[in-house]
């Protein structure tokens, strides 16, 4: 009895890790790229929420969830581009603009999204990778959304590209030393603009996953701060795209802890266990940072490390 309970919880956490981690992963990869260019975009929370709304509305209106994903990505890149464009002005602080963009994105999403709270839009399909097993829980856990796989592939691609391509080197140069980049004739503002726009694109897709797969509907309380936690996640993974995937899975698993315990009948402390990702964020930030040390691996141009 004890054993099956534990197995159920672990399976539920695995399933949760796979399901819940995808938006974390996309936002974190986007943020990772943006921060690699030397800017922080705290507005990704707003981008995520707007992406969720845009994806849901598009899916409902056209009947194609994949079109919804693309629209979410494009709207996200517009938000990123706006952030990037404002931050290139003199004397503008990227963190302040990020917070403004976060409020702007969520506000805009609520404004346009009122009409889509009731209707039901077509969802993204999932791939049943658990066809070989009789265990219904495991089979359920292995129902995987293609976006999850795309996210992992993207992380590997980004990791490789940062080390082995011209664009990767230019991005790292820009993020680590703007004077050096300028001396090499790199257009620092343009690189950062593009990196922020692409980061927004990924965050938008993360939002599409929220509304079109899990939890799978558009409500105003859809995001529970994933966009902000992803920023912490990037620091935790030390600006390494592969580590971002691991960190996203960890956060996903933590998020699934509450529901998993409830499924085996432990409902005491449900809300406490639901807060696990936030606690984890806090604990990780405390453990991995120190007032007497600067962050290792941090891009030198970030306003938080300068």
């Amino acid at each position: 009895m004890e054993d099956t309970g534990l197995v159920t919880v672990l399976l539920a956490m695995l399933a949760g890790a796979i399901r819940v981690s995808t938006p974390f992963m996309f936002v974190a990869l986007g943020e990772c790229l943006t921060e690699k260019s030397g800017r922080i975009n705290l507005g990704l929370e707003g981008t995520l929420v707007f992406g969720a709304m845009a994806a849901y509305a598009t899916s409902f209106l056209t009947g194609s969830p994949w079109l919804g994903v693309i629209v979410a990505g494009l709207s996200g890149s517009l938000f990123g581009a706006l952030h990037g464009a404002i931050c290139r002005l003199k004397g503008v602080n990227d963190i302040a603009i990020g917070i403004a963009m976060m409020l702007f994105g969520t506000g805009l999403a609520f404004f346009f999204g009122k009409a889509y709270i009731q209707p039901v839009a077509p969802h993204l399909p999932s791939i049943a990778l658990g066809f070989w097993t009789d265990n219904p829980n495991l089979a359920k856990a292995l129902e995987i959304n293609p976006l999850f796989l795309i996210g992992i592939a993207l992380a590997v691609l980004l990791w490789w590209a940062l080390a082995n391509t011209r664009m990767g080197l230019i991005l790292r140069t820009t993020g680590d030393s703007a004077p050096a980049a300028l001396a090499l004739g790199i257009n620092v503002d343009l690189v950062r603009f593009l990196a922020t726009a692409f980061g927004g694109f990924l965050a938008g897709i993360g939002g599409a996953f929220l509304s079109l797969y899990y939890p799978g509907s558009w409500t105003e309380g859809l995001s529970s701060g994933q966009g902000l936690m992803a920023v912490a996640l990037v620091i935790f993974s030390r600006w390494n795209p592969l580590a971002c995937v691991g960190a996203a899975l960890l956060f996903g698993a933590a998020g699934a802890l509450g529901p998993a315990l409830q499924s085996i009948g432990i409902s005491r402390g449900y809300h406490f266990f639901n807060a696990a990702p936030y606690l984890l964020t806090l604990i990780i930030m405390i453990l991995t940072t120190s007032p007497t040390r600067s962050l290792k691996g941090a891009p030198g141009e970030l306003s938080i490390t300068k």
Partner: peptide
């Protein structure tokens, strides 16, 4: 210095 601190010497030369 106009070298990029986090890149290796090889990467700095190639870029």
């Amino acid at each position: 210095f106009t070298l990029v601190p986090s890149l290796t010497a090889t990467e700095n030369l190639v870029i």
